[in-house]
Simulated scan of single mutants.
Amino acid sequence: MNFNHFDDDGQAIMVDVSNKKKTMRTAIASSVVLMKRETLRAIMEGDMRKGDVLGVARLAGISACKKTPDLIPLSHPLAIHHAAIDFECDLETGVVKVRATVRAFERTGMEMEAMVAASLAALTIYDMCKGVEKGIEINNVTLEYKEGGKSGIYKKSA
């Protein structure tokens, strides 16, 4: 397998994308937050001491995707045109599914930005709820979908 983040001498490099054409690129990533039903109920009813948990997590995820090149050393700074964080809450199972969508007209993909956004939104949920429940779990950060560029469309199989 040939990794393109290394030069011929095995040194880590930022991939040169300067000759690539800009195309519209989209990435969707998700994460799963597991908690007690009572904790999720309090979030959904707005009864958490720290305030609007999902609202703050949404802003954290959007902010995080814009900071990806500061966090991941070889990632490119990108002019992000759209970032959204959505939540699916299942009160029966105590699950919050975080879904991050990131879009830009760029030379390289948005996968890392979407995964960072989904991760930070989930971590923010944990941070805002840890006073109530320490055993919250964050699982399954994954790329669900991407499109744009030479590699075309990727869709995670079910």
Rank of each mutant, 00 (worst) to 15 (best):
T68C: 14
N19Q: 15
S119F: 02
Y154K: 05
K97A: 10
K130V: 13
S157L: 09
K22M: 13
D7L: 02
A64V: 07
A121Y: 04
E38R: 10
I43Q: 01
M35N: 09
I138H: 07
K146C: 00
S75N: 09
T68F: 11
M115N: 12
A64N: 02
K156N: 05
C129I: 14
G10K: 11
L74D: 05
H76A: 10
R107N: 10
A158N: 14
F105S: 03
V15R: 09
L40A: 10
P73Q: 04
V116N: 13
A104W: 03
L78F: 01
E106D: 14
K66T: 08
M1K: 13
N19I: 01
I62Q: 12
M128K: 13
G131K: 03
D47Y: 11
S157Y: 02
A42F: 12
I28T: 12
D127G: 13
A12Q: 03
G51A: 04
N2W: 13
R58D: 05
I13H: 08
K22F: 00
S18E: 14
N19K: 15
M115W: 01
S31E: 06
G61R: 10
G135D: 15
I136R: 05
L71P: 09
K155Y: 03
I28M: 08
V17W: 14
T39R: 08
M35W: 02
C89D: 05
K146F: 01
K50F: 08
N19P: 00
V53S: 12
V141D: 05
E137H: 12
A57D: 04
A42L: 15
A158S: 13
D8Y: 06
K97I: 13
G109A: 00
N2I: 14
N140P: 03
I72Q: 10
I62S: 01
R37W: 02
P77K: 10
G10N: 08
N139G: 00
E137F: 00
T101Q: 11
G135V: 02
S63K: 05
K67W: 00
M110N: 02
R49D: 14
E88I: 11
H5G: 12
L71S: 08
M115V: 06
T124C: 13
I153S: 00
A83Y: 02
G10I: 12
G148F: 08
R107Q: 15
K150Y: 02
D70W: 03
A117E: 11
K20F: 02
R37S: 13
L78Y: 09
G51V: 06
V116P: 11
F87M: 04
E113H: 07
D52T: 07
E92R: 07
G46C: 06
I62V: 14
I125N: 12
A121I: 04
K146A: 06
Q11W: 01
N139V: 08
T124R: 10
L123V: 11
K134G: 06
E147D: 07
K22L: 06
V98H: 01
L120V: 15
